[in-house]
């Protein structure tokens, strides 16, 4: 989705896009002709020629490790798409290098910029649910709904498959809202239409704070018009059910946080999402790049979606893979 990152940055008042790198001649010709962008086919040449302050990396996951390493060594700030790396070892090296180089580092887990999930995190952090004892994290959508698909998404070596490409979003959300995954009790990776990768992931996981729960993700579910992610969290004082649009909270007793009642309270994304200056596909996509730009400018701390937090997700993905055998 590099083209939508470029569109958002192209419209951003505090960003000057000094170079674009793509391997497609058709894309480069279009961008230089109409958008007057300076285009490259070699990112190293781009770095040397235009000397950017920051680089957005939106390429297939298998290229992340080597490209991000090169970029870190040249000292630029980096926003990269998810998932972070293909192995936890690669990610660990980059986390250390980013810290050493003191550059802003961010991964595109856009759910963190969705108002409903932000509110869930706030409620959990203030202990509103009491002792949390169970969660269900789900994600469904229509990515692979027929046999015979042949893209990098169907190649496990390139970061394809439902676990890396799709389940990573909701794993990352749980890492952030509750705690990073500590162990995986057992997993089912099912191929539904694909032959080389899994289309569904069902997993029983335990987090670092000893809360356990269920992960249920299926990218071959066409009953959802687009990707639908939701979390259900149960605690001794109540329950939260949230997706990207709607937040439903149940409290057993009075003495709830401000804005909530005993029993059910429903809040909508419209009440919880701040305005963006340029909208394409969803507020969260603009908001995450705004945050990155502000972090580079030193206006906000670089604490959301850091390489470190994305590494926890890579690690959880590895644990899930290992738990299958």
């Amino acid at each position: 989705m590099g083209i939508s990152h470029l569109s958002i940055l192209g419209a951003h008042p505090n960003v000057e896009v000094v170079g674009v790198c793509d391997t497609s001649k058709m894309v480069n010709d279009f961008l230089s002709r109409y958008g007057k962008f300076t285009c490259f086919t070699d990112y190293k040449k781009m770095l040397a020629d235009v000397k950017p302050d920051a680089v957005v990396v939106a390429v297939p996951t298998k290229f992340h490790y080597s490209m991000i390493k090169d970029l870190l060594e040249s000292g630029v700030h980096i926003f990269a798409e998810k998932p972070f790396c293909l192995t936890a070892t690669q990610g660990e090296e980059l986390v250390k290098l980013a810290a050493q180089k003191k550059v802003v580092n961010q991964i595109g887990y856009h759910n963190k910029f969705i108002g409903t999930f932000g509110e869930v995190k706030r409620l959990i952090k203030e202990g509103a649910l009491g002792q949390v004892y169970h969660f269900v994290a789900e994600s469904y959508g229509p990515v692979v709904i027929r046999p015979k698909q042949d893209t990098w998404r169907s190649d496990p070596k390139e970061g394809g498959g439902c676990l890396l490409d799709y389940a990573s979003h909701v794993i990352d959300l749980i890492n952030d809202i509750l705690a990073p995954v500590k162990s995986v009790k057992g997993s089912l990776l099912k191929s539904i239409y694909s032959t080389t990768v899994e289309d569904a992931v069902y997993s029983l996981v335990e987090l670092q704070n000893n809360v356990s729960g269920v992960l249920s993700v299926n990218w071959s579910d066409e009953t959802h018009r687009k990707m639908t992610t939701s979390v259900t969290i149960e605690g001794t004082k109540g329950k939260i059910i949230s997706d990207a649009n709607e937040l439903k909270v149940y409290f057993k007793d009075a003495g709830t946080p401000a804005g909530y009642n005993k029993g059910w309270t429903v809040k909508y994304i419209t009440d919880l999402t701040p305005q963006v200056d340029f909208y394409l596909r969803g507020e969260e996509y603009s908001a995450q790049l705004d945050y990155f730009v502000d972090a580079v400018a030193g206006k906000v701390p670089n604490t959301i979606n850091t390489f470190q937090s994305a590494w926890y997700t890579d690690k959880a993905i590895e644990l899930i893979k290992q738990s299958v055998n």
Binding site: S7, G10, F30, L31, Y34, G35, L280
Partner: peptide, 15 residues
């Protein structure tokens, strides 16, 4: 809007 706004951000006003 998904196309209008994509082209808008890419500054492809001619399209």
């Amino acid at each position: 809007n998904v196309i209008t706004d994509l082209l808008l951000g890419l500054r492809a006003y001619e399209v």
